[in-house]
Design a protein around this nucleic acid. Structure first.
Lengths: 214, 214
DNA sequence: ATAAAAATCACTGAAAACAGGGGCCTATAT
DNA sequence: ATATAGGCCCCTGTTTTCAGTGATTTTTAT
């Protein structure tokens, strides 16, 4: 019996690439392809009884991205395997996917053989992550153990966020219904906690942590 | 006589996609493909007499990116046409390419037909830019006329950079061998010029402009 | 040649930030 | 039960930033 695959990618040409690779592999049947996750999410929610073996998906897509799609798939049907093929190698994305139980992740510059091997491995029930992705993931885990010792509290995050939004101490106090002394304490703690010298340092940190938009 | 094409893309699967599209078009001959611009640049510099009609290239590639490759090609042989196929739609990249005389630019989510049409158009000697790209380009040109009024001088950039690096006024003055009053003037001007309220705003601007690393 | 822009410096007063203390009150985890 | 962490507040004193105003010299563009 053939394996049923679904492929999701908003880059038409890339989709063509995958199709041309899979064409020569008779054991796979392309059930359908789509340009964004939404269509597939709907399809899977409706056709719960249909046998789907593997969904191959990109990450950045309009409407519904790969991360969310993966989550939806896994929530609906644990039997459906997922393989992410992406040019992104942002450690945070990788981590999110892993914790959402994705079955594999390879880079878009993978060779044909690796791609086929990934599919094969996953359909056997194992996970497949390309070396590159594994390295990034591990490196990130490792470096986090150092950085994670600086853990800000909720309130501190509130304050640093507002600081980076260019509010003064008094304004922040008003916004949070606190005394300006309190805000000053928080600012002071933040400065020593984060090992920076002034507002500029706090602002950079807030930006790095994505507490504020640039 | 057949047209000779060269295709450059570090995403193997994408390359496969392009190849599978062009296979059915007998008028095109794929002269060679490569994973980065360097190989092609070298090839073109060596084989100056060889007839090459079109180079299709991605933008982000290891070793030598699409922008630089395009420049090298055009410097070596004006007869070679270039088509950029990319998922990037950063206005600055587009602008750079246009000013480097690229012959076409389409997005990676273009349909097969548009891709073929782009090639055809370019080989006829015309330019081809997908609607999406044209829109981005024009929108950017338009919005720039507003934004470009905020142009920082060299000195202002020096100062805002050091501010974002967490130096105090006095320290900046010492570093630049200026009076602290001067630095204060610059800071003041920067704040009003950039329409921000304080150091945090300046720091965010410096970060956005990449004057400092996060 | 001369006008405009950039770079430099100065002063004042008010507001804010920074440094270094300390204290009090909860929740919660051992 | 009691230590620990987070959240909250206050004081003193110094330094820095911010806002407003103005001036000189050098560079650049027309």
């Amino acid at each position: 019996m053939k394996y049923s695959l679904i492929i999701v990618d908003d880059h038409k040409m890339f989709l063509d690439g995958i199709l041309s690779i899979l064409e020569s592999e008779s054991q796979y049947e392309i059930l359908l392809t789509a340009k964004n996750g939404k269509q597939i999410a709907k399809y899977i929610e409706i056709n719960k009884e249909e046998q789907i073996d593997l969904v191959i998906t990109d990450i950045s897509m309009p409407e519904l991205d790969g991360i969310s799609l993966n989550k939806i798939i896994k929530e609906n049907n644990k039997n459906i395997k997922t393989l992410v093929v992406s040019m992104h190698s942002d450690p945070n994305l990788i981590e999110k996917l892993v914790s959402n139980d994705v079955d594999g992740y390879i880079s878009k510059n993978a060779e044909k053989q690796e791609f086929l091997k990934a599919i094969e491995t996953i359909l056997k029930g194992e996970k497949y992550f390309s070396k590159q992705i594994k390295d990034i993931y591990l490196k990130n885990k490792f470096s986090k153990q150092k950085k994670e010792e600086i853990q800000l509290t909720e309130r501190e995050i509130d304050v640093i966020t507002l600081i980076a939004k260019e509010y003064t101490t008094q304004e922040i106090a008003d916004k949070l219904f606190l005394s300006k002394h309190t805000i000053e304490s928080y600012r002071k703690n933040l400065i020593s906690k984060l090992n920076v010298r002034n507002l500029a340092g706090l602002t950079k940190y807030a930006l790095k942590m994505n507490y504020v938009k640039p």
